[in-house]
Computed example of a mutant assay.
Amino acid sequence: MTSTSIRRAIVPGLAVLALALSACGAGNESSASTGSDGSGDSSSLSGTIAGGGASSQEKVQAAWRAGFQGENPDVTINYDPVGSGDGRANFISEAYAFAGTDSALTDEEGELSDAQARCGDGNVIQVPGYVSPIAVVFNLEGVDTLNLTAETIANIFNGSITTWNDDAIAADNPDVELPDTAITPVHRQDDSGTTENFTSYLSEASGGAWSDEPDGLWPSSIKGGEAADGTSGLIGAVEGGDGTIGYADFSAVGKLGVVSVKVGDEFAAPSAEGAAKVVAISPPVEGAGETDMAVQIDRTTTEAGTYPVILVSYLVACETYESEEEAELVREYLGYIVSDAGQQAAADEVGSAPLDAALSEKATSLIENISAG
């Protein structure tokens, strides 16, 4: 698994950027808490913690916060969707109590070691919280769906294919009337885990058509196209153009056209079930520690029913915190996220793939160990 290099700039104005949900209802001694298992046990949790990172988690974090804070009205959870790279950097600098990232922490660029140093005597915990397809989205008048191979997608985004009626596109879409409209690829300009997962797919599945190394930052070698900030910025740029194409978390697609990608002998549309099946057949990252649940996504699978353009978005935290209040809030909130209740809230809100039972159980056991050092 490749990693992006660390960008340490701390995002200013966390309070302004935070998308906190206000605590609703007056707190009282009998208020219910989800607990780390989402069971609704009685609790007197209170306080505020800040987290942030992957913008792919923006909508699902809103659902998680609503569910958790609804049961714990004296708690405020802030989540800043600043991108995976800044999320990891802000966690390492201790600006965030936890982070969301679409690219797992690794030691290829020293991030894992830096995070371990931030966590002191306790280990870094990295667990999957959100599994979702990455949709290749487009805006082309009169066309709602297209079939594209990984090679064709790579050649669109590297600038080799420039019009929508190109022979490579037409070959897989014989029943679609394709205009000669110019193609405008739209990519993320921020340090993005979605970009790293998307370019990993292109690198591994396109048969050499994509020559750049996967990274959270769009390759500087590729000229042209349009850059946009964050998931919402990319979607807005694709919506606002004609002949535009981009990539984004499936939850953000809206009314845009969606590509079905070649898997084996068939074309597969993005789906939660297809994403979950890929995760199920993907091995753990080689050499991962006992508290690290990162997986090596199998992006070249030809197995029926899979959709390999996916992201596994992780939750990053420490086993130990200086403050008992901070440790308790991180433990209970992240425990809710990986619980059946939290995963169902995500599925209901954004159509994500719930963690399977084995992954959920392991993630819960790691999170339950969070305490004050």
Rank of each mutant, 00 (worst) to 15 (best):
G224L: 11
K262Y: 06
A15R: 10
E177M: 11
S211C: 07
S3W: 11
A269E: 15
T306V: 02
E332Q: 15
A269V: 13
Q343M: 10
S30V: 14
P179K: 12
G230H: 05
P174E: 04
F68I: 06
T199V: 04
V82P: 03
E324L: 13
S36Y: 14
T231M: 11
G289W: 03
L366C: 01
V124S: 01
E58R: 09
A18K: 09
I183S: 03
N147F: 10
L329A: 07
S43P: 14
A15N: 14
D41Q: 15
G40Y: 08
D242Y: 04
S55Y: 06
A50Q: 15
P283I: 11
W210A: 02
I77F: 09
E324M: 08
D37C: 13
V124W: 01
V258E: 12
D348K: 00
G52Y: 02
V309H: 04
A341F: 06
A304H: 06
A272D: 06
P12T: 11
A170R: 05
I183E: 03
L146S: 10
G274L: 05
S206Q: 07
Y307N: 06
Y307L: 03
L17D: 13
S211K: 14
V186Y: 00
N158L: 08
P219F: 04
V258Y: 04
I367L: 12
A275T: 03
N155V: 03
A357V: 10
S260T: 09
N139E: 13
G207P: 01
S203V: 04
G85V: 00
S271N: 10
I310S: 02
S5F: 11
K362D: 07
D298P: 05
A32L: 14
I49F: 02
N369I: 12
S220T: 13
S56C: 03
D80Y: 10
S206D: 07
I281Q: 12
V338F: 02
W164R: 10
V124D: 01
V186G: 00
P284T: 02
E151L: 09
V309P: 06
S352C: 08
T48Y: 13
S33H: 07
L45W: 05
K255Q: 15
S271C: 05
N123V: 07
E109Q: 14
I297F: 02
A205I: 04
D212N: 07
G335N: 11
